[in-house]
């Protein structure tokens, strides 16, 4: 009997959206509430993994044409990069700045360089988590040759 994944796949479509939203929320909210780059990143990764679970790798790959390892590296680079910006200003490495700004739509919003740092963290986590899972799944067929 051929596996019938219709139920799973249709539910997945909805849940993935929820998860994505939720992870963005976790990520952005991290500075003031539980969450942050790491958890945000990991739950994003969970969403992606769910996609892989429900569908197959190639299908998902069509939509995500990213080398996740490079994504991870990019994340780390961003994190280091924020460190260097502090240095350019003459402050110690990794000095974070924050300020309250009035933005047109969001109103009074806190802008913190920590968020950029956190973005790096999130990217690194997504990249690594997904690339780990993918390499295991993909690597196998190569290995057996």
């Amino acid at each position: 009997m051929k596996p019938n994944d219709v139920i799973l796949q249709s539910v997945t479509k909805v849940t993935v959206i929820i998860i994505f939203t939720f992870s963005v929320y976790l990520f952005l909210n991290g500075h003031h509430h539980p969450g942050g780059g790491f958890i945000g990143g990991l739950s994003t990764a969970a969403a992606i993994v769910l996609l892989f679970l429900a569908f197959d790798i190639e299908k998902v790959r069509e939509n995500f044409q990213i080398d996740f390892k490079k994504l991870a590296a990019l994340g780390v680079l961003i994190a280091i990069g924020t460190g260097f910006t502090g240095m350019l200003a003459g402050d110690p490495f990794l000095t974070q700045y924050f300020n309250d700004k009035n933005l047109p739509i969001f109103g009074k919003t806190e802008l913190a360089t920590a968020l950029i740092f956190d973005t790096g963290v999130a990217l690194a986590v997504i990249g690594t988590a997904v690339s780990i899972i993918l390499s295991i799944s993909e690597g196998d067929s190569l290995w057996k040759r």
């Binding site: 991290g30 500075h31 003031h32 509430h33 539980p34 969450g35 942050g36 780059g37 790491f38 780390v76 994190a79 280091i80 460190g83 490495f93 990794l94 974070q96 924050f98 300020n99 806190e110 913190a112 920590a114 740092f117 956190d118 790096g120 963290v121």
Partner: peptide, 21 residues
């Protein structure tokens, strides 16, 4: 100090951001 209300997160990204990096 760091403009964060989540202390753990502040430690992670700012006070000890280096560890996180």
């Amino acid at each position: 100090l760091a403009g964060a209300k989540n202390i753990v997160n502040a430690i992670l990204v700012d006070f000890r951001g280096f560890d996180t990096m």
